[in-house]
Structure formats: structure tokens, C-alpha cells
Design a protein around this nucleic acid. Sequence first.
DNA 1: ATAATAATTCAATCTCTATTGAAGTAACGG
DNA 2: CCGTTACTTCAATAGAGATTGAATTATTAT
Lengths: 123, 123
Amino acid sequence: MAVDTGVLGLEILELETLASILKALADPNRLRVLDALMAGDSCNCELNERLGLAPNLLSHHLRVLRKAGLVSARRDRIDGRWIYYAVNETAVTQCRIALNTLLDPARIQPRPILCGPEGQTNS
Amino acid sequence: MAVDTGVLGLEILELETLASILKALADPNRLRVLDALMAGDSCNCELNERLGLAPNLLSHHLRVLRKAGLVSARRDRIDGRWIYYAVNETAVTQCRIALNTLLDPARIQPRPILCGPEGQTNS
DNA sequence: ATAATAATTCAATCTCTATTGAAGTAACGG
DNA sequence: CCGTTACTTCAATAGAGATTGAATTATTAT
């Protein structure tokens, strides 16, 4: 999880890193998976029942989310066949902060056009 | 811009709509473009100078952002050859709210496992 | 009309990715 | 050891998307 001042001078995450996390989020099925995990840890089969997605497809999406750092996995203490997935709260929060910074309406400047004919009248 | 109660019962945007907006955001170059536009309206050529991206590539990315509703375009009043791009504040805000809702840490439930052997001890 | 300018569209390429079905792993129970 | 269970990985397909260079549109200036 790359953390620095960022290209924008505002972001917690690098622009490239933020883009890759957004890529992981930018899928309806993965949003559903993440939303389901927000309500509590789940195994593959429970997600299967709740979301109606094939186990191997869930595996794929869970791997993408895990690769992005948004989700973590652990095996059942009693029966190692079961794997429980959980939301990585710190990653989610970092993502949230980065997006709130980037998309902050206060950053939208009504700066006059600087290029083009209209811009000439605003110099 | 589809607006309703949403699949999650919490979102302002439909899950599918949110995913498509995130897809538009999930690219480093488009994040740069959006960030540049947050600082003020720009034409293609100014973005070209500031970001070092080819005009046709910028055109492509601007179209994606526009299709997602995040950016709007208008022609110069004096010289119609120039097109100025601007951030759509309402869309950006809606996206922000939807993400803040979805990624709200307060929604992360430490719910005990319900499936698997561990779950049996939590019934 | 002709040339020049700002921007878009087209065509081609290359990569990435979501999905599906089949096969493979890992772990438990008898 | 054998079968079952939970999950993953593999292979194949089909579609989407980023990038580049060439051609095109729209608008203005001469």
C-alpha cells in the first residue's frame, strides 16, 4: 500500500495506486461482494448463496479485491477447508480519504478560462 | 444519471451506475484530467500542455468522463473551435456521497461467522 | 475558395478482463 | 486410503479498453 504525498500534493495514495484500487472497485459484482463483506466476514459459499455467483467467479473477484488490499482472507481455525474473507478497514478508509480529497467540491475552482479567445479577456 | 434508493438500500446511485462511474475514474490519465479540471475549466490543448497527453487521447478520455456524467463541455463563445471542459459538480458530489456511504467504516460489522465450523459456535 | 487551427473520429493493435466449465488443491471424515 | 467438501486454478472465449497515427469535421482567418 503505497503511501506518500502523492502527485496531487493532496492525496494520501499515489495516483496510480488510487487508479488500481478504483479498478478493483469498478465492477458491479465486486461492489456487491464488498458490500456483503461490510456486513460481516463471509466464506465463499455464503457469498455464493447471497449473491448467486459461481464459486470460481467469486474466487476470481475476491482475488482482485485482495490484490488491491481491500479484502483479507483467513482459514477456519477448526476446519481449514473454510476460508473467511473480511474487509480491510484501513485500506477502505485510505481509499475513502483519497477520494474525498480528490472529489472535494471545494477544490472545484471557478477559474476563468486561460486559453482561447475567451481566455484573452480574462488575462 | 440514475438516482434511486439503490440496491444497498443506502446508496444514492444504483450499484451498476456507481460501477460505471468508478470505471470512468479508474484510470491514471483520467484521474489526472479530472484533477486538472478541478483547478478550473480547460480546453483540450491546455490539458495537452499540462499533462503531456496527445490531443486524440485526451479526446478519448474526456469522452469517457463525459459519458459518465463527470465532465461537461461547451464551445467558446467567440471562437467555436475551442471547447472548454468542466467538472460536473453535482455528479462528482453524488459519486462522493455514494462512495462515502458504501465505504463507511461504521458499516463494517464485526458480525460473528455464520457459516462453517466456527459459525456453529456462534449460533 | 484556400489555408490554418482545435478537436474529434477512424482504424489498427495490443492488452486486459469478466465469465464459464473442467480440472486441480487442500483439508476433513470414515 | 477413499470419498466428500470448500475452494482455487486452468484453459478458452468473448468483449472492453488504452494507445497511436492517419484521416475527418468544424470553425475561423486571409
